[in-house]
Every structure is written in C-alpha cells, then in structure tokens.
Design a protein around this nucleic acid. Structure first.
Lengths: 352, 352
DNA sequence: CTGTTAGCGCCTTCAT
DNA sequence: ATGAAGGCGCTAACAG
C-alpha cells in the first residue's frame, strides 16, 4: 500500500505563551514583555526567556494577538488626483479588498492629493502624522517629500512608497518595479521584434521630468545603443501623457519618416499613438511597444496594432502594499519574494 | 491646508455578533447558526437575521473565529516524487512559509507519491480521506484519479488541483496556468523573433502523453499554422524530460537540418538542448524558447542561448494553493484575481 | 428551536 | 521587576 509514498511536515506549532512561561518559570506577562522587547525585565530573565522561545521556535498565534489588541489598524493610501487609469486601477483593487479588510478590522483610507506638487504632497503627508499605523504613498522624489516621509517614520508610522520610490528617504519598503529594467525590456523587445530590418525607432514619453519616464528612457537607450546600434533612434517626443497631443506628434513624425520600423511609448497616451499609426496605415508593420494593461491596450494587443504591453500588476501592487504595511505594523517578517513586483511582458496570447 | 485633497474610506466595520444579536432580538448562538447555515433556526428568524447581517454588511472578525475554533487546520500537498526542479521549487516555497503557517496554526504536510501512476495516486488520495481539511494535488487526469478527488470532496475535504488540472472532477479550484495559451505564447514568440527568415522549426517535448505537454504542443501548432505558415515545423521529438536524451536528439536533428531557425522545448531537459545548440555553434543564431525559470535557464537567458523562458511563478502557486485552501476551509470568498496564475514571459532584461 | 456559558491565546491594566 | 486577572469576538457544548 503505497510504500512509494513519503511524508514531510512543513509547519506545526501548538505551543502557547503559557507553555513558554511555565518552562521559564515566569508569568505570561513577562514572556509577553520579552516577546515585544518591552522594558521592565531583568536582562538575565530576558535572555533565558528568549532562549526558550528560540529553542522551541515559538510563534505567537496571530489571531489571538490581533483579537487581544482590540484597536483596529488604520492605513492611509495617498494617491494622485486626476484621471490616471493606472492609479484608478490600484484604487479599484483596494476597493475589491474591502470585505477582506473588514474581516480583519483594517481601516484603509484613500487620500487623493496633487502628488506632483512637492509642497502639497509634503503637507498632505505631514497632516497624517500620528493618525495612522501605516501610510502608502505614490511619492515624488523631492527633498520636501523626503523630509515628510522621514518625519512620519520618526513618528512611528510605517511608510511604503508605491509605484514611484524615494530611495533616499527612510521609507520601510518600496512596492513597485525597477523602471530602468522596464525600459531595457522595452528596448530589447523593440530591437528583437524589428529583427534585421534597417530603419528608425521613434520614442515618445509624457515628460522627461517624471522620474519613472526618465528611468525607462535611460534603460531603453542603454539597450538600443549597445545591442541594436544599427537602428537609428529619433529624438524623444514629449506627449504629456495626452492622447490628442501624442497623436499629432506621432502623425507628423510618421509623415516625415517613412522608414520608421519601431515605436516605444514610455507613458500614457497609447490610444493617441495607436490612432496615428492606424491612420497612417502602418499599424501592423511598425513594431509598437507601450506600457500598462488597460481595456484599451488589451484591445490594441488583440487587434495587432500594439505588439507588447509592459506592465506592472496593479492588483498585486495594491494587495502587496496592504500586506507589507500590515506585516510592518505587526512586526512580522515580510515575504519579500511574494511582495516583489515583476515586470510583466504581455502579448496577445498571454493576456490575463 | 490642502483643499485639493479629498478622502475616501475603503473599509471599516466595528460591528460584532453581539450587535447583530441585539438588533435581531436573538442570542449570539442563533446569529452564529444563521451565519454558518446551521440547522435549528426557524426560517422566519433566519430571514430576519440574514437581513440585518446584510444591511449592516457585517463581517465576522476572522481572528476571533480562528481563535475560538481551537482546532488547527490540516492541509496536505500531494506532490510528485523525483527530482523535478519545478516541483522542488514549489516545495521550497512552501518551506519558506513555515513561520507564516505556524503563526496561523496551519499544518501543511507534504506527501510525495508517484503521481504518474493513476492507481498509486488514487490510492494515496483515498488514504487522506477524513484526515485533512484540504488537499492540494498535482493531478494526473485519469478516471481513477477523478473518482478519488470526487470522493474526497464528498467527504467534506476541500480539494485544489495544482499545476496540472482534472477539469472533469469536482475539485474546488485549479491553481495553475492555461497550458494551451502557454503553447500559443511560445509559438508567437518563436515566430515573431525568427522574423522574415525562412527555415524550419524544431520542437521537443517530454512526452505527448502528459496533458500539459500535449496542450502546449497544441497551442504552439495552432499559432504556427495560422500565423507563421511560412515556417516548416519538424516532427515532434520526445526527450522524456531528460538532458542526455534531449541533447542527443537535438544534436542529430541539427546535423540533419542546417536550416533550423527556431526551437521550442515544451518540457524539461533544457540544459541538454542548450548543450546541443552550443556544441553545434548555433546557440545565438537559433531562436530558442523553453519553459520555467531555474538557476540554469536564468544562466542560459543571460548568456543569450535561451531567448525566452515561459514560466509560471512557483512561489505564487505555492502560496495561492495555501490561501485558496484556507479560504475554502473558512468559507470565505476567494480573491480570484489574486489567485490566478499568469503566464510569465521572461527575457534577459525582466528577470526577477 | 433557542439561549447560556466556558473558553481559545494573547494583550493590558493594575497590583505587588 | 514581576504577577494576576479581565476581556477581545467568536465557537461549541450543553441546557432548556
């Protein structure tokens, strides 16, 4: 009877605080103090208790801890005002979590503010001080913002940057992709999909002033320069993430250069770019790579105008931000492999 | 004072069972019965209580419920014996969760068995009946296995198929990718990366008898036939997922056909295939697409022998399986968007 | 059919 | 510096 079958145990733990207390010859309260590095315990006792906790690989029961705390945790998400579809997706996925959040007595508040104005953003962040256990923020990288983040951290609030990082701050975690790598990925795809065909490559961004756009452009140029130097890159256009403006710019460019073989849109405005390509009757022949998965880019992928959408999973980002804030608040370890945001390459056949 | 700032609440709920009980004019126990559709409550009372629960969007506190249950949940993972690296990755990621699992009093047992022998697998599954709250199984699609799964389900055990599905069974959930779509993705990538170059395409699988391999081959041929019909596909080779055998087969094939421009490895044995390509001095010129991310495929991607690895995230699969089993056991809704496994396209520049 | 009650394991205040 | 005790919100066994 199934001698070929072997078994193994991944995890099991039935110990409780009481067991540890008994083994250490102290009370529950003392073990609790040691567990949370609270003062009021003699160093010798601390060591003894810690040793016993470690030896038994004791894990306090999160459910019991959560219940005993009583107080609900409060998190704030500071997101950009305006109609950015990607940000709206993140907000929508937060909304989808509401039952999950309620069942854990987690309060998540959405705070929309002008994240592109450093002083406004910094002021919004300062206003949160002391009110929340954790804050997730789509952050502009600016000294005033950095200072505001550091103040929050100093005040005991857990801070996670979302989508856009402030690496020089002391934020606890960044939930988002490496935009240089995303740009390199775009470059490699444009280059490889164009193949041997000689010609020019067009590139359009929202603005070089946006850190994520600048990083993507950097990565893109890096790869194009080193591996596809036979392809000529046209000067960068700035479409301000606007469909109409992007369409006009690309239309004009296509008129001027009949030898364009590849096109990379770094930011939003993909519908405008696609319109220009279609109107010029070159939607299928020009390799077109853009960012983010929306109803629109999905349609363009299916009809073949867009060849690749490079994306970061907004649902994953929303949930990862919440989980990371929760782990930080509970002083639990973060499952970093789980929370890492990947650079997704989406083509027609692997659309989710 | 940030007048541009607006706020919104995603989730908040402080109601307890007691509140509902008071409002309904019944006892705690009755509300509890209604909440879990347990018998022993007059239909009229059931309706009234349900109405109040719904009106208040009441969510029972999971932590309290978990604590009150007392009994720990037991889950079993039935995985293949043998040295399949992908399966070993899943097991490793389960191991990494052990602290997380312990803190929630979840017991996960690993059961290695010969999942490729239907009767052995079916027997292993039958043996679990009644012992576990949930079972995740890498399942072979066979009538005996289907019956065993259905028996478990009938016995009240929650069942999740992992990586390989048995769609005709009554399993509660499948955690894995759509292998036809994965094959189509592979086909599209081989075709597009080869470009205009005429030539032949080689394809090697472990065995056509494996459902996932058969499905990938089907998807691959579908795309090649309809969109890249100028490329000639050579007859399928079967390498039995073995490096040496795969290397020999591919070496011979490369010798016979100097016009091979693309190569798709459906299963394991990628190292062997790569060796054959390198020895023939054609590692860089032939477009090579394979599956799964391992230390080895990562190396091959970085050095350029392998162009694309199509993969499913083993860590995500391990965690999703656990979360789904837990949600099923608690009768909580499943966050389906979160648990869906994507077909990842991994190239040199977007390696995680 | 319905209500009462004793915990689950931990945190927290209050005593000592 | 340490201990005792109540209670968080829910479940389950038992009483009516």
């Amino acid at each position: 009877m199934a001698q070929e079958t072997s078994e193994g145990l991944i995890a099991s733990a039935a110990l409780t605080l009481k067991d540890i207390a008994r083994e250490a010859g102290v009370s529950l309260a003392t073990v609790d103090r040691v567990l949370h590095n609270r003062p009021g315990v003699r160093p010798a006792t601390v060591r003894r208790v810690q040793e016993i906790i470690a030896r038994n690989a004791f894990q306090p029961h999160v459910a019991a801890a959560e219940l005993a705390r009583g107080r609900a945790r409060r998190f704030a998400f500071v997101m950009p005002t305006g109609a950015n579809p990607f940000m709206q997706q993140i907000e929508a996925y937060l909304g989808e979590m509401s039952a999950w959040l309620s069942a854990r007595r987690l309060n998540v508040e959405l705070i929309n503010t002008d994240v592109f104005d450093p002083s406004v953003l910094a002021a919004s962040l300062e206003a949160l001080s002391g009110e929340y256990d954790g804050v997730a923020v789509v952050a502009l990288d600016h000294p005033a913002v950095r200072a505001a983040i550091n103040d929050l951290v100093d005040g005991g609030t857990k801070v996670v940057t979302l989508v856009s990082d402030v690496p020089s701050s002391r934020r606890h975690h960044y939930v988002g992709i490496d935009n240089i790598a995303a740009g390199r990925t775009a470059g490699a795809l444009v280059g490889r999909l164009v193949g041997q065909k000689p010609g020019r490559i067009a590139i359009i961004a929202g603005s070089q002033g946006l850190r994520d756009h600048a990083e993507r452009i950097f990565g893109f140029n890096q790869v194009m320069g080193s591996e596809f130097s036979h392809l000529d890159i046209l000067p960068l256009l700035e479409g301000r993430d606007d469909d109409d403006r992007s369409e006009q710019l690309i239309s004009r460019l296509l008129g001027k250069h009949p030898d364009i073989v590849g096109l990379y849109n770094v930011g939003a405005g993909t519908q405008g770019v696609a319109n220009a390509l279609t109107e010029a009757g070159r939607g299928k022949e020009i390799v077109f790579v853009a960012h983010d998965l929306t109803a629109m880019t999905r349609r363009l992928l299916l009809q073949g105008t867009l060849d690749v959408a490079i994306s970061q999973n907004p649902g994953h980002e929303a949930r990862a931000a919440v989980r990371v804030l929760l782990s930080l608040a509970r002083n639990e370890p973060i499952l970093s492999e789980q929370e890492k945001i990947r650079i997704d390459i989406l083509m027609r056949d692997n659309l989710p």
